[in-house]
Design a binder for these strands. Structure first.
Lengths: 132, 132
DNA sequence: GTCGTATTTAGACGCTATCTAAACATGGAC
DNA sequence: GTCCATGTTTAGATAGCGTCTAAATACGAC
């Protein structure tokens, strides 16, 4: 609770009760939830919160770097809870998104791209997770 | 016309009039059109074609490798008309998707990923195109 | 030509996300 | 503390993209 409030303040976000509830819940979630998954999770502790508020909160968090908005799944936007850069692997069978550590891959040639300013980049892999 | 029919046959797709019309139109399109953009383009030459038919045709084409379905833009799926592999740069301001030649970047370490089978990968860059 | 299958069609439906207008809360000035 | 201006939340309406459905149509094999 205190941590979540501090996290929002540090990011320059006014910590309302609803936003704190969302931030709190995000800390306990894993993977790459959609906005609706966050909405339903938050409603377990804050049943009256509205859809628009959760969507607004997530958009605000993304603007302030608390989470990252990602276009990785078809039909819906997912929120990436990890702040450190990393790559992604999307399982073709299940659609599940897995993180790939930043250091596992190295992209050569980004600095030589002169046509545009690179703000961010990542490798997106489509594949299949090994059953092990 | 003949070329489009041949392209579909080569891919193992039964070339109906509607599918040929879609394939024909795709050959004249540039960039990364959405299904609805393809629909409206095709209707210029085939005004009675239905939405479902264009969506079905594109899904079929994607299944047979004629085009690639890509999740790069928020809220909608785009179809990639180029068959050779390449990377993508998404302009943060305009949302326009640009192709980056495969040879412009080199990803090191993909072969060493042992947790999963890699079917395909690409670098996705977010940035800003230089005005020049 | 006849039959069975594949395809197309218009419209209904579902889902994700945004917008709207009203209600509500909050922080600062006094 | 009270007042006001501003920021926030809310429920429901709305919009956009995509899929589904059932009926009509076209097609290939025989």
């Amino acid at each position: 609770m205190v941590k979540a409030i501090q996290q929002l303040r540090d990011a320059g976000i006014h910590p309302t009760a609803q936003r704190v509830a969302v931030a709190e819940r995000l800390r306990t979630m894993e993977g790459h939830p959609t906005a609706d998954e966050v909405l339903h999770a938050v409603r377990q502790t804050y049943p009256t919160i509205s859809r628009a508020t959760v969507y607004n909160a997530l958009a605000l968090f993304a603007d302030h770097g608390v989470v990252h908005k990602r276009t990785l799944r078809e039909g819906t936007t997912v929120y990436d809870l990890r702040s450190e850069p990393h790559h992604h692997m999307i399982d073709e069978e299940t659609g599940v998104i897995h993180d790939v550590p930043w250091d596992a891959l190295h992209v050569v040639g980004v600095d030589e791209l002169t046509d545009f300013d690179v703000l961010e980049y990542q490798v997106v892999i489509r594949g299949r997770l090994h059953r092990s």
